[in-house]
Design a protein around this nucleic acid. Structure first.
Lengths: 202, 202
DNA sequence: GAAATAAGTCAACATGGCTGACATAACCGA
DNA sequence: TCGGTTATGTCAGCCATGTTGACTTATTTC
């Protein structure tokens, strides 16, 4: 928390209901939610709108692949795994765990299904043979691309609609939205849209 | 699909593995993934980067409230419900179903918990007494704000980092990312950061 | 008064998270 | 070379949250 501190968490857990017809949303007489003095800071209300828009945008962003996945008996978890294996083929199981922020038991379940059904193959690492490097099969690539297609259309159109300069702005926004400590990791992952340089863990 | 059509889904489900060391990511000799001629269209690779950044950004965007929710025995589903009830107090159950795109049975479970624990109250509609309008209690407002706080900080900083004009660009981008048919509904919902005008369903 | 609508409920099931415990193979340093 | 660490896999069970289908109740509407 760097800003906004006295905004939320200020009028704490009052007693009880006082049922309906609440004033706009909180007892907040200050005009700008506590972050007014910082010249450029947005009002809390505007930030909340962005939070909502982000929710709706992401909800719909995932809807097309979700629909396709059902035909394959897969879920969103499979999509995530397949996407990253396809885009960064040769990554290790540990890399994937780090990207997805899930446990290896959770990953194991979906990864095994993707392997069993022939969408992903494993290969022992060259330098370290304990590592299992992951690669998409042709079938895996085809599915990954089919899942990505509607998302790319969506993004392409949204960027166009956002107007000139949108690309740079959006990139900076998204990167800054990622937790600071995660950024180097994300950069490192995204820097290899190809076989990850072996041993390039961190 | 408006563009990008012959890009993905082109080289379909080939036979089998041909294991590792895949060329960058697909058999795609065309320089610009099939959407080159449209002067301003981004390359497939760049669009994929945006897709990944969106994933990472959203992953981290939800991480702070998720951590807080654990202390309350709630999950992300509770957060979503509480957020929308707080921001758009007085909405109906049907509105919520529409926003969240889940079944009423799914909603019922988390909503009941939020009601039982005193975060949300219901009130019969004035004009139509079948409707159950939803309102946050003081306790509910407090929790909603506590959950929102880190997200607002994150957004505020990311918008600052994105530079001048980011606000307008981002708004256009997010709105355009929402499925076209959903946009009127979303606008209508977002237009009421207060008690929804009764009967204002669609 | 009958049909349609808003909401709630019961039951069963699927997906994808989680924890904990433990096994195997390979690497690495003393 | 042995012993500790690391990378991965696996078994077992639990929880959160999504699904379908069937049905009830209250209320509005025609």
């Amino acid at each position: 928390m760097t800003d906004l501190n006295e905004g939320p968490a200020a009028d704490q857990t009052g007693p009880e209901a006082k049922p309906p017809r609440a004033k706009t949303h909180g007892a907040r007489p200050r005009g700008n939610g506590g972050l007014a003095r910082k010249r450029a800071a947005l009002s809390e209300a505007k930030l909340l709108e962005f939070a909502e828009l982000l929710f709706f945008a992401y909800r719909d962003f995932t809807s097309d692949p979700d629909a396709i996945l059902k035909d394959f008996g897969f879920g969103r978890a499979h999509h995530r795994v397949l996407h990253f294996v396809n885009r960064h083929s040769g990554l290790r199981v540990a890399d994937l765990l780090d990207i997805l922020t899930i446990t290896k038991q959770s990953l194991s379940r979906v990864l095994k299904q993707l392997i069993d059904k022939g969408y992903i193959v494993q290969q022992a690492g060259a330098s370290d043979r304990r590592e299992r490097l992951l690669f998409p099969t042709d079938k895996g690539r085809a599915l990954a691309e089919r899942l990505a297609a509607p998302q790319l259309v969506r993004l392409s159109e949204a960027l166009k609609a956002a107007g000139p300069g949108a690309e740079a702005v959006l990139r900076r926004f998204l990167e800054a939205t990622i937790t600071a400590e995660e950024r180097p990791k994300v950069s490192s992952i995204m820097a290899s849209p190809a076989p990850l340089k072996p041993g390039g863990k961190d």
